[in-house]
Design a protein around this nucleic acid. Structure first.
Lengths: 208, 208
DNA sequence: GAAAAAGATTGAATGAGTTCATTTTTTAAG
DNA sequence: CTTAAAAAATGAACTCATTCAATCTTTTTC
């Protein structure tokens, strides 16, 4: 059943995604024309649309691959986190943020986020949203783990608190990609300040 | 100086904004063509572009008007808030959320948010972002006010905590407009749970 | 009040994303 | 091996946002 057709299909899909990702990085999302992507991938324009619903779809597909890597990188920290809530959050969030601009430009992030909001029902947007949910879970898992260790007071809703941390870091990441002049350090600093009240308080009195 | 020209200009601007808002609500953003908006406003397509830089601009303008109203409505609550942090936040956030769908559809919100992320430098996007910042300040102001009253522990960073509450309610509002099936009540419930840890903790031990 | 200058309007032309009827390629059947 | 059916690829045609040179309207100047 691993016929010629299936092999060609997988190959074309790979070529299109690669061509698009390269072009987006080279000339930016807006300037990359479907015709150019198709030409580089050695398919026709029509074929492009057999593989991706629209231009945005392929960008969100590329960004989703990136988020998947971020998720994997975060796992190592969640598996053996620093001792305090503050340090653990700083490490995890720093990991996320540092990874974010390795393959993608701010413009690509902006466009991908915009698309995932505007067309939430498209397959790749769903995938992106789902990965976002897993990142959120990762933060909650971290808090729950620290709670088991006694670094977070019992009685705290680890899931609720984790979601709050995540929503905060996510929203601030949006502000970050909206502002071409903002640096990663500034972003981390702002988020650190915002997280501090909650992080300190759920750590219990012994910290303070 | 209140010449004919200025009057005509104001009038055309009003007609265009009204026509666009009506059409967006009637047929949705994507299906509303510039040609249709121009026709309804009794101007030419070219004239539309003398008043708004692009199609998205006019939607963001409409949404900005809405946010301005929300801001005004929130002021009454910040001016004389309920006694506890939990109640005050519930009241303010409920006010925001209840107001949000009076004039705008979820699709319009999605599109406006997407545009403000994707083209952060356009004049109307800046305006939208600025209004968002004022909403954020409003939440911080509420916390600061409660702190003066003694309903929030001293030593807490009211601005940082306020920003966190705001980023959370904002991010969840994005999730809300992305999901056509989610109700306002569900949204409020989720945000209530997420806010609870921080709200409870900053209230000090007497609450608990 | 006529003529020049400034300010606005206009709609045909442009360009890029998307569609779809046709053609080509692959697989399945006899 | 031939032929029919299914699956994919193709690119010309279409749609719609956007631009801009030409035209018209209002204001200013003398």
């Amino acid at each position: 059943m691993t016929g010629l057709r299936a092999k060609q299909k997988a190959d074309r899909n790979r070529r299109i995604l690669q061509a698009a990702t390269d072009l987006f990085r080279e000339v930016g999302y807006d300037s990359a024309r479907i015709e150019d992507i198709a030409e580089r991938a050695e398919v026709s324009v029509g074929t492009f649309y057999n593989y991706y619903q629209n231009k945005g779809d392929i960008l969100v597909a590329a960004v989703s691959m990136e988020v998947k890597e971020v998720l994997a990188a975060g796992k190592t920290i969640v598996d053996s986190p620093p001792d305090t809530v503050g340090e653990a959050l700083t490490a995890l969030i720093g990991q996320y943020y540092d990874h974010s601009l390795v393959y993608l430009s701010k413009e690509m992030w902006r466009t991908a986020m915009a698309i995932s909001i505007q067309q939430p029902e498209s397959p790749f947007s769903r995938r992106y949203t789902e990965l976002d949910g897993r990142l959120c879970d990762q933060v909650s898992t971290l808090i729950a783990k620290l709670q088991l260790r006694g670094a977070v007071m019992p009685g705290i809703d680890a899931v609720g608190a984790g979601q709050m941390f995540f929503n905060n870091l996510n929203m601030m990441f949006i502000e970050f990609v909206k502002d071409e002049t903002m640096t990663l350090d500034t972003l981390k600093e702002i988020v650190g300040r915002q997280n501090r009240p909650l992080a300190t308080l759920i750590s219990g009195p012994k910290i303070q």
